[in-house]
Structures are given as structure tokens and as C-alpha cells.
Nucleic acid binder design. Structure first.
Lengths: 191, 191
DNA sequence: GTCTATAATAAGATAGAC
DNA sequence: GTCTATCTTATTATAGAC
């Protein structure tokens, strides 16, 4: 039942939402970009744009969570693993010419006061991402409470740094944050 | 030259941009909310919405910079000063019912690929905010380079935490980041 | 599953009067 | 400085054919 058309729509939509945000992205543009039949959009997504956005957010964040999980567990030392994760994000943003980064931040901010369904999809995505980081830290011997605080700081600083780097068209902040997160985790007490 | 009508438009616009973002905010809504004459909008802002947004961003960030400067220099110890700054932001977001926070983040993300003028206004605002934090750290004895890295991390983590707290309608991340930034600065080497 | 046509609405922007 | 009216062009969404 995993329709290919449906999947194409979600992928095109999530890319456009990352580049432009929610309200700037029209359904026509999603149809054009996805190269899917015009008549299929409301067939697969009866609730229209709202449903597409909620599903696109969920899809994008589940991909990000899987990717983060694999990346962060390639390296044993948590400080090094998190450093490399953020540093790689800085390299990706450079490659892409500073037009991407923080895939759901725009949509989260644009809809947090106007659309509960989309807001909740964003909130769940953010929570899942934090959980992966926290689990890595717990596995590395940090107490549950300290791991939670460190994970929150890593997730928040990475999200903020992506926005700042993208806006300033400069990877420096992301690179500085990567280095600082490494130091922070290295010097953190484990209990 | 400081027209009151002009000022009212900018204030209403910057509030709406914070709540809804750029593309969801219409010129009619700005006129209504600001309680200014309909015919004045294009008189004061010949370039229309783009000009309003660029000026609103500049206004909002210069206020934020002034506010941050005063707040951060009330307390001598930099770790404590930054802790209180972020903690106060968490209290404000609670008071406001999680509908505000990160005043220009949405507009920055929505326009970073489509409007150079607005993007630059956002970039300058973010830079000014970092400068205030960096200056405080330099004054506290940190080397220029370490102060820059710490300031970048504080600015990024605060921005990210505001977005996450707002999206999750929960102040925890902001409070955890406040606590962690305090530890980070306390334990940072000064050179 | 997919099509076209269109409804219904709202957007940003401009012209010309006063 | 401010007004109204209007142009142009989007938008989301639906109806009905195939």
C-alpha cells in the first residue's frame, strides 16, 4: 500500500517546506516539483495541505532520527560522536549553499499557534531526536538526569546553529558549536 | 521624523511576524492590528511588505540587543549572568502561553532563500546579539577566541531552545539549557 | 486513480482623488 | 497623509467526468 505517488508528494513537499517554509509553499508547486498527477493530491491527502505537512514532518524527522542514530553510534566516545555529528551538518550546509538546514523549524514556528496537528508532529519529531542523543549519553555512563540536560543542550544548540549559519551564510557558528559541545561533554560530570 | 504611525506599523508587524511568520501575515492584518490609517502603509513603506519586514527585524533585534546588554551586565559573574538571561526567557515564554519566542527565526528561515534584503537584516541582528554576549565574556577575562566560541554556543542554544520549548509547549529545554550554559562557562578555560 | 475546470477567497500592489 | 477602488495574481479546495 506504500504508493509511490504518495511518497513522491511527501518528499517534494518536505524539501519545499525546508527551503521556503509552510505558507510560501503552494500545492501547485508541490505537484509540479513531485512530478505526480495533479488529480492525486486530494486522493492521497483528503485533508489537503495540513495533512501533507503533518506527514512530511513525521517522515523527515523519522529519517533524521534514523540517520542520527546510525551516525552517533559509529563512534564509541560520546563527545567525539556528537562533535562529528554537528561538524558533518556544517559540511552538508556548505555543500548545499546555505539553503537548507533545520528542516522543520520554519514549519514549527509558522504553525505552532495556528495548527495543532502540525505542531504536534513537530513536537514529536524533536522529542525523538533528543531521545536518540540522550540514549547515547546514558549508554556512555551518564546519569539519566545529566544525560537529559546534555541532550537538550546538544539538540537546541544544533538547531539554533543551523538557523544562524543558514541566515548568515557562514558555517562558523555550526563549527564552533560542534567544538564546544565536544568540550562540554568531555568535561561533564557523569553523575 | 519619528512618525508615530510608522512606529505603530512596525510594532504590530513585528508582533505578527513573531506569532505567525512572514508569509502568513498579511498587510491588511498589519493595518488592522496597528490601528493606523489604511492609506499610510505604502506612504511610509514604498517597498511594501519587504521593507516593513526588514525594518521590523532591525527594530526587534536592536531592542533585543539593548535588553540583553542591560540584563547581562547587571550581574558580574558571566556564568550567572547568562544563566539568568536564559532562565528569564523561559519564564517569559511561560507567561505568554508558548506563543512567542525566537522573534525573527521564522522570518529568517522563510526568506533566507528568497529575499536578500530581509535575510541580511536578520543576519545583522543575530550578529549584534552574539557581539553583546562575546563582549561580556571578553570583559570577564576570556580570550577573544574562546569568548567567540562560547558566545556562539550561547546564542545558538538559546535560539534553538526557544523554538523547541515553544513547539513542545514546555519550558524544560530552555531551563535545562540555562543550567548547562552556566556549567559550561564556569568550567571553560579562559585561554 | 486521475483529469480539467472552476469556485471562493485572499494576497500584494497601484492609481488617482482629496 | 490618507482614502477608496481596483488590478493582477496567487491561494486552497471542490465538482464531476473518465
Amino acid at each position: 500500500m506504500t504508493s509511490e505517488t504518495r511518497q513522491k508528494i511527501l518528499e517534494a513537499a518536505s524539501n519545499l517546506f525546508e527551503l521556503q517554509g509552510y505558507h510560501a509553499t503552494g500545492l501547485n508547486q508541490i505537484v509540479d516539483e513531485s512530478k505526480t498527477p495533479r488529480g492525486s493530491l486530494y486522493y492521497y491527502f483528503p485533508d489537503g495541505k495540513e495533512e501533507i505537512a503533518a506527514e512530511a514532518v513525521t517522515l523527515r524527522m523519522s529519517e533524521a532520527i534514523t540517520h542520527t542514530y546510525q551516525l552517533i553510534n559509529q563512534v564509541d566516545d560520546p563527545a567525539e560522536a556528537i562533535y562529528e555529528m554537528i561538524f558533518k551538518a556544517s559540511q552538508k550546509i556548505i555543500e548545499q549553499g546555505y539553503c537548507t538546514g533545520a528542516p522543520i523549524a520554519a514549519i514549527a514556528l509558522e504553525t505552532s499557534n495556528s495548527n495543532e496537528r502540525i505542531r504536534q508532529a513537530c513536537a514529536q519529531g524533536y522529542e525523538g531526536l533528543q531521545d536518540v542523543i540522550r540514549a547515547k549519553l546514558v549508554l556512555s555512563g551518564f546519569s539519566s538526569q545529566i544525560a537529559a540536560t546534555l541532550a537538550a543542550t546538544v539538540a537546541a544548540s544544533m538547531e539554533g546553529a543551523m538557523i544562524l549559519s543558514r541566515t548568515q551564510q557562514n558555517p562558523d557558528i555550526l563549527i564552533q558549536v560542534a567544538a564546544q559541545m565536544r568540550i562540554m561533554i568531555q568535561t561533564a560530570s557523569k553523575s
